[in-house]
Design a protein around this nucleic acid. Structure first.
Lengths: 198, 198
DNA sequence: ATATATTGCAACGACAAGTTGCATTGTCAA
DNA sequence: TTGACAATGCAACTTGTCGTTGCAATATAT
């Protein structure tokens, strides 16, 4: 979002180029991966000369880092209180699944998985991805504890790994869409497994 | 035997070279990924001239395909009957986790996740990985159903995605080892979540 | 209208990929 | 043992992509 302001003296036709390049970079990340990324392909996809890219982002790392930070992961919908742990999990999972279905989400996930030579970028992607998935969990867990739906012996990271992992497995490995019925089953198992055990 | 055959005339010093190249290829897959794989790096790592690789495997796809099929994923240990669903899950998960901790396992998982230009290889990696993880589940589920530990409404693919996904999340995303305590928690949630619900 | 910054374009050197011809060496078979 | 053959090592070559540079064209703010 954000349109160019008239007071911006020093950026004539920059914004649209930046947007196009960032989008193309995310697309390239999703299709060819972090290590095999080609600036010339990005330039062609963004309909921009490659020199324009090289001038604005001197190194490949800068370009990718910019694109990854360009992805705003806000799962505020995951913060929603539906009245039950099962409902909260369902909303959060759906938000993550929808994000993974976008080119940007796919790109971010793949970049986080890749172990290219530039470990910094992988770490950045991992941080961005973790921020998006782990952040909304705090409120969810607190509410579930309050309702007595969450066994205190289970640390939050465990079911988060299971939920996000299942989504990644379904999307990136099985290459199948996250249907409502499939997600229902996953959340069924999770909610039941998190319930207070005797 | 009776008739003179020159069938085995052609493989003087082949085997050790093949082994070294396959191992180096799996290593390269794990470190640089499928798309950014370099034959020259593999040749250097295997202490073999690059022409030897190019002659034996004409294309890059053939090389990678050979390496992926070279990985024999047999989780027969996952077939073990421990007497309880929880125990069976624990054994299977440990076998998968240990495999993911090896260079070959890491390479296979990464190759399955990557979406390089050669979709065939990704598919092959996915098949190999799925074969290793999904195969032992049949017996496990049957035994759990017999024991009354598995709600018939839950299809086997769902908890399998959750278990394998959690392992992948832990290993490839969090970059943390699969400790016994962490695995205990995961299996706790899974076993409880799979139990017959009223 | 002018100044300034950004973009497009074309050409360039650098470097890795993949190929080819030839010498060397290991292994099988007689 | 020895000859024949296949596999390997080595070096040079072609090709293609990457990233850089100089210059002209163009958009924007003042």
């Amino acid at each position: 979002m954000g349109s160019t302001k008239r007071r911006d003296a020093g950026r004539p036709r920059g914004a649209p180029v930046i947007d196009a390049v960032m989008a193309a970079t995310l697309d390239e990340l999703g299709t060819h991966g972090l290590a095999a990324l080609s600036v010339e392909r990005i330039a062609a996809a963004a309909e921009v000369n490659k020199t324009s890219i090289y001038r604005r982002w001197p190194t490949r790392e800068a370009l990718v880092a910019g694109a990854l930070e360009y992805v705003l992961v806000d799962f505020e919908s995951g913060q929603e209180d539906t009245g039950s742990l099962r409902g909260d999990l369902l909303v959060l999972a759906r938000a993550i699944a929808d994000f993974l279905a976008t080119p940007a989400g796919l790109a971010l996930a793949r970049a986080a998985f890749a172990e290219s030579s530039s470990a910094e970028l992988t770490a950045l992607a991992g941080r961005q991805f973790a921020r998006g998935t782990a952040e909304p969990v705090g409120g969810l867990v607190a509410r579930a504890l309050e309702r007595g739906e969450w066994d205190r012996r289970t640390p939050p990271e465990v079911p988060l790994s299971m939920l996000v992992g299942a989504l990644l497995h379904r999307t990136l490995l099985e290459h199948q869409p996250v249907s409502a019925s499939w997600l229902d089953r996953v959340v069924d198992v999770l909610a039941a497994g998190l319930a207070v055990r005797p």
